[in-house]
């Protein structure tokens, strides 16, 4: 805990300006509303949330693909959020990415060699033969071989394409790789191959990962810490095992409970325990207070007016929920029993 974080995100906000019909004006959309996260060197942070939670916006802000509207993103000693132009090459080569869709993340007109060596062409003065030799090494790291160098992406399966994308991300030996849903487009039988590969390379090179996913269970396998996002807010953060086994925020709980169990009998029991509520029609965006208030079974009057701060949780990490406010410990239990859903 003494060493400084590799990446430190403080109170980050990302806002997109909507475009109206004629390209001017339009509404603003707040994708990230004040997120605070940090990753130490060689650590993996899993960033979990449903669509629209702002997790990909954080990834894009870290990668410099969108501008932070406020807050800070510190990478080592450099403040990324204030960089007006593109990242300087020294920073750029330290932060790489693997994206979700292996079918569109590889340029269809380039060979595997060109894709894997592109970072080397941009950042190093290696000649062609050196680059090719390095490409062979990189392919070996992802369990592909030299014979694949001259092929085009369409000749590979989704899992193999994702291996190629990982080889390219490893080329410059970065300190941080942003993994944006790296396996969600893959078949179940190949998902774990990629997870294992990422895990092995991390151990080998000491790379830190920011892994974005919608599936808590998947992230749990590979992450040291997990952060859960809901509507632009980080609602819970903590050590991977604690978040997965003892979720502190009602939303994290709901997220875990919603995933069907592989045991049909246990799933049936859970199903009957859960009262099948009608589709929530309440507006997802609330003006003030907790972002989860409209769907939360434990909602209190306080949640409607105040934004819950991040409370420390036993076992590590924080949760932004008044259930964990120390002075209201008793209220927590009664609120839980009542399950007062105010609509």
């Amino acid at each position: 805990m003494t060493d400084n974080p590799l990446l430190e995100i403080t109170d980050l906000q990302v806002t997109y300006s909507g475009r109206s019909l004629f390209g001017f004006g339009g509404k603003q959309f707040h994708a990230v509303k004040g997120a605070t996260l940090s990753i130490r060197a060689g650590e993996t942070l899993g960033l979990v949330g449903e669509s629209g939670s702002g997790k990909s916006s954080i990834a894009n802000a870290v990668l410099g693909l969108v501008k932070a509207s406020s807050g800070s993103i510190r990478f080592g000693d450099v403040e990324l959020a204030s960089l007006k132009t593109r990242y300087p090459p020294a920073i750029r080569s330290q932060i790489q990415a693997v994206f979700q869709d292996p079918y569109s993340s590889l340029n269809p007109s380039m060979t595997v060699e060109a894709i894997v060596t592109e970072p080397l062409r941009v950042h190093t003065s290696m000649d062609r033969a050196e680059r090719r030799a390095r490409a062979v090494e990189l392919l070996k790291l992802v369990s592909l071989s030299e014979e694949h160098l001259d092929r085009h992406p369409h000749q590979f399966s989704g899992g193999q394409r994702q291996r190629i994308a990982i080889a390219s991300a490893l080329a410059l030996q970065p300190k941080l790789i942003v993994l944006d849903e790296p396996v969600s487009a893959l078949d179940v039988s190949t998902q774990n191959q990629i997870i294992n590969l990422l895990y092995e390379r991390r151990a080998e090179f000491g790379i830190a990962y920011l892994m974005i996913a919608h599936d808590l269970a998947l992230v749990h396998h590979i992450s040291d810490r997990i952060a859960v996002m809901y509507l632009g807010h980080v609602v819970e953060e903590g050590p991977s095992d604690r978040v997965y086994h003892a979720p502190a925020h009602p939303y994290t709980r709901a997220l875990l409970d919603a995933v069907p169990l592989l045991d049909p009998q246990a799933q049936r029991q859970r199903r009957t325990a859960r009262k099948s509520a009608p589709a929530s029609d309440a507006p997802r965006l609330s003006v003030s207070g907790c972002p989860y208030q409209n769907r939360c079974p434990h909602v209190m009057s306080r949640c409607r007016s105040e934004m819950p701060p991040a409370y420390a949780i036993d076992g590590g990490g924080t949760a932004s929920c008044f259930l964990h406010a120390t002075e209201t410990c008793d209220t927590v239990r009664t609120a839980k029993d009542k399950e007062s859903v105010v609509s």
Partner: peptide, 19 residues
């Protein structure tokens, strides 16, 4: 191979090769 099937660190069980 299902993500929820095991509760452990990698290596996770896999089916080798591709469909």
């Amino acid at each position: 191979a299902m993500p929820h099937a095991s509760d452990r660190m990698p290596p996770l069980p896999t089916i080798r090769g591709n469909v």
